[in-house]
């Protein structure tokens, strides 16, 4: 177990370095000198010089790369170009609002879609299963922005059930601002997830151990909830990691629409303001978090399926 974790930990180092290299190449080499993008066309020579010095663009490329690695390790990404705030400070402020929206949304989506997927697989081939599958395909085909705009317009603006947008740091009040975006996220992700879990669970039900369980006279619910569910954990965990990018996209759109001051809003504002250092820092941070998520799943695999460790 310990050796497995260490091996996995070491194997992420090349990936982390690769991400740093790609982000650096993208922002500092392909894009040319980003000073002009940040200042626009009407900058004078002195402004350009100041910016180039502050962000280290006047140094040689290898030195720039080392500086970037230093930023990653020390978690000090310098200052935002548009707000002049420290980027680490901005990320620190944004992380709690983001998590308080996305963690409940993600948990609810996962639990609900596993439950529905299990139900559909249990009633496979019957009318209820077919209707579920059709609804899933329809739900998958609607754009996320459509859900957001319709939800905000209909439930918040027309019916007034929820505030249209905003955020509150005190706890019981925060809930009312989070419910609407959370429900929208669940609806958006449900289609794909239910279909995926249904297929994963159906694949398990054709295994030999299910036949054995039936042969020794176990009831169908016991087979499903005790045996099949446990054995479907590997594809379920895999899907949870695959969903992380969708989670990030969801955070972007939902936060900016519902005025939640999280990491998504910060990034969207940065895009709108051409705030180069913030976009670079966010790209790095999100990629690193994703790699950590992958690592955590690799470790979780060993808990749900001891065979994984041996490979």
């Amino acid at each position: 177990m310990f050796a497995y974790i260490v091996r996995k930990l070491l194997s992420t180092i090349p990936t982390l370095l690769g991400v740093a290299l790609i982000v650096f190449a993208l922002f500092n080499l392909v894009g040319g000198d980003p000073t002009y993008q940040m200042l626009g066309r009407h900058a004078n020579a002195q402004q350009i010089e100041e910016v180039r010095h502050e962000y280290g663009f006047d140094q040689s490329r290898p030195v720039q790369f080392l500086n970037y690695l230093k930023q990653i390790v020390t978690f000090d990404y310098g200052r935002s170009y548009s707000t002049r705030q420290s980027i680490s400070q901005m990320i620190g402020d944004g992380i709690v609002p983001s998590l308080s929206l996305m963690i409940p949304a993600f948990l609810l989506t996962t639990l609900l879609s596993i439950a529905i997927g299990l139900g559909a697989a249990y009633f496979r081939g019957k009318a209820i299963d077919r209707v579920t599958v059709i609804l899933c395909i329809f739900g998958m085909s609607l754009p996320m922005l459509g859900y957001i705009l319709f939800g905000q317009y209909f439930f918040a603006f027309k019916l007034g059930w929820f505030p249209i947008s905003g955020y509150e740091t005190a706890w019981p009040d925060r809930v009312q601002y989070i419910i609407m975006p959370m429900v929208i996220f669940v609806l958006v992700s449900l289609g794909y997830d239910v279909r995926f879990y249904r297929t994963a669970i159906l694949e398990e039900t054709s295994q030999d151990y299910v036949r054995t369980a039936r042969a020794k006279g176990l009831s169908e619910p016991v087979i499903f909830f005790r045996h099949v569910l446990k054995n479907s954990m590997v594809p379920i965990l895999t899907n949870i990691v695959i969903e992380i990018p969708l989670l990030i996209l969801g955070a972007f759109l939902l936060e900016s629409f519902f005025g939640i001051p999280g990491l998504g809003s910060i990034t969207i504002d940065a895009v709108n303001n051409s705030d180069f250092p913030v976009i670079k820092a966010m790209t790095t941070l999100v990629a690193f978090l994703y790699i950590l998520g992958n690592l955590a799943t690799d470790v979780l695999y060993t808990l749900v399926d001891p065979r994984v460790r041996l490979k």
């Binding site: 690769g18 922002f27 894009g31």
Partner: peptide, 23 residues
Amino acid sequence: VWFYTTVSSIPNIMLLISVTFVL
């Protein structure tokens, strides 16, 4: 494999934003 693991470690939307931002 290292190259595509690295590229896929940067969530798609961030990579899209950065590439369009840079280009």
